[in-house]
Amino acid sequence: MSYHVKTALSDLWKEKWINLLGCLSMGVGLFMAALALAAVINSNRVASALPERFSLTVFLKQDATPADIAQIQNALRGDKPVKSVAFISSDKALADLKEGLGNKYSYLLEGLDSNPLQASFDVKLRKEYVRTASVKALAASLKTMSGVDSVNYGKGFLDTIQKVAHAVSEAGLALFAGLLAGAVFICYSTIKILFYRKSDEIETLKLLGATGWFVRAPFLLEGAVMGFFGGLAAGAACFGAFDVFLSGVGGALPLLTNLSIPPALVAGLPVAGMLAGMAGALIAIGRVRP
């Protein structure tokens, strides 16, 4: 085992309480940073994947010719994301409405001398294609076809979801950066304490001809170890917290069932912790003057 590794490990052990505290504090910081990042990832996913059984209604103009209608239908059938297309004539729409109102209110519709309802296509989309961007593109292309009056797909709903997701993303990323900086700072202050405690020893090393890196190396290793285990603890906490969350709140809201903490994110925590630890240690020691 190399001298620096030995020194780092024995120093870690000698100051185990300070180091444990530093490690756990870094873990908390990294845990919260991971949650912030998970929020960003999940909000983006929710915004891009629309609710299942999402449908789109294409309203036809009153003067749409049968040729127009056939062309629209063909276009829809040929489109990959489209699962099923149902044509609803204006007569059928009126009949549906009557049925919906029931006998009690059917008088409301009496006295209409012409049918005011528009014919439409009810379009169901395949689940795997239900993405905000593709729905928007489909709607836009349908709108340009002759005979189409309007396309209704809950634009307001989609826009709101996207706006919310955007806001969550930005806030989450800012929080993530802040918390990561916090983890670096915790390591910085812990290593600074160790560094001051050993300042006499460091002075001796320098008088014996040690270079700056010889002096720094054990501290860098200590920072790396502290960050690594902090990250490991944070990763474990992520899994635990998420299980609790899903079995509690998550199950109640269907929208949340496809939330997840990406495994890659959890796996990255120890690495991120290690880098944060080394960065903190480097800043703490700074330039070692001979």
């Binding site: 024995s10 008088l207 001809g209 270079t211 001979p290």
Partner: peptide
């Protein structure tokens, strides 16, 4: 500054206050 460690490595010093690492 960067040459100071090399200067010191060419010298062996018996410090009056010893400067042993107690750990």
């Amino acid at each position: 500054q960067s040459d100071i460690p090399w200067l010191r490595r060419s010298i062996g010093i018996v410090f009056q206050d010893f400067r042993l690492l107690l750990t």
